[in-house]
């Protein structure tokens, strides 16, 4: 049972999250957009956490599934093919296609040692990008490096996510509407993750991570269970990709480079592999690194040298690389490690 104090705390957090976009909007709509992308990265991190954190499989091409979801959305809801399906039809399709891609990639490699998976996923990420870049001929499928634009925004009945609505004195801009939608999805993903973690399947994932041979001997079909982790992670990536396409209104291969995979991995690793709250914290923290750099390093350089010597984008990647290396060296369980003691959920159960 939750104590009253915990309930009070949760209520406070909920109110803060609901009020947040209006506070941010006061500082500029750009901040709402930045927050939306941060939430997208939280979603991606939670998806990757199933693969890397729970099951201990290093996936270095995770962004490929994000890309698959984004392109599925772009192709089915844009003037490119003249298709305009509603988002609640496309998102499940995107998740399914990404899931299939995950299974096709995972099936041959998951029975091998983990490092092969790492390098194969790394290559897979590249391949997906190469295909996106080149599948503009002989049939124009992806429109090549130019990407696909004028992607439909979400639309629920009369509610258009690209326009502003006013309710009394409150202005619900497009980004704010997306924020609430993302928040709902995030809530769902957190619940799903927690439930999976506390289930027969979730335990099997952790068992494989801890000792694969013992897991096999204990009756776990490790190949299938690993494939399941891979497929689940890919599906989450696909859903996040679809939302990304809609929010951005534009997709191109440039958005799905290796660096993005590394960024999501850094979020999972820094926060604490396997710990949902740690991963969320890591993702939020690293999502705001570029903004932080923009407001500190850039002006500092301008003030000191009168020009930009070090590109903040480079610094950003250096921060991610260092986050990976230093976390592994000094705090391998992450800043907020997973704790596997009696969980508060237990009391609620059956």
């Amino acid at each position: 049972m939750k104590t009253n104090r915990e309930r009070f705390g949760l209520a406070l957090i909920a109110i803060a999250l609901i009020a947040l976009p209006f506070v941010l909007a006061a500082a500029g709509t750009a901040w709402v957009r930045i927050t939306n992308f941060a939430v997208l990265f939280v979603l991606l991190s939670l998806g990757l956490n199933i693969v890397v954190g729970f099951a201990g499989l290093l996936d270095l091409g995770y962004v490929a599934f994000f890309a698959v979801g984004a392109y599925v959305y772009a192709l089915l809801a844009s003037p490119h093919f003249g298709l305009h399906l509603p988002f609640w039809v496309i998102l499940p399709i995107g998740a399914t296609v990404a899931c299939l891609a995950g299974v096709i990639l995972g099936a041959p490699t998951l029975r091998l040692r983990g490092d092969y998976l790492a390098i194969v996923t790394l290559g897979f990420g590249e391949i997906v990008r190469i295909f996106m870049n080149n599948l503009s001929s002989p049939v124009n499928l992806t429109n090549g490096p130019k990407g696909i634009n004028r992607i439909d925004p979400f639309q629920i009945g009369p509610l258009d996510f690209s326009a502003s609505d006013t309710l009394g004195t409150l202005v619900f801009s497009g980004p704010i509407k997306y924020y609430y939608f993302l928040l709902l999805v995030l809530l769902a993903v957190i619940v799903i993750n927690r439930r999976l973690q506390d289930s027969r399947i979730g335990r099997a994932w952790v068992a494989i991570r801890e000792d694969e041979i013992a897991a096999k001997a204990s009756g776990i079909n490790t190949r299938n269970i690993k494939l399941l982790a891979f497929a689940m992670g890919a599906s989450f990536g696909g859903i996040a990709g679809g939302m990304f396409a809609a929010i951005q209104g534009f997709v191109s291969p440039e958005s799905f480079i290796l660096n993005e995979s590394i960024m999501v991995l850094a979020m999972v690793v820094l926060g604490g592999m396997g710990n949902i709250w740690g991963v969320i914290a890591g993702a939020v923290l690293l999502s705001f690194v570029p903004e932080l750099l923009r407001y500190t390093v850039e002006p500092a350089q301008m003030a000191l040298f009168g020009k930009l010597l070090v590109d903040p984008e480079v610094l950003r990647m250096l921060v991610f690389g260092l986050a990976l290396v230093l976390t592994m060296r000094f705090r391998p369980a992450g800043l907020w490690p997973e704790t596997r003691h009696r969980r508060e959920m237990d009391a609620d159960r059956a």
Partner: peptide
Amino acid sequence: APRLAPLITAIGMSIILQHLAL
């Protein structure tokens, strides 16, 4: 350390070296 740790470090070092070169 567990197998995953040096692999993650390796990918981190790769990113660091690449961007130092940049």
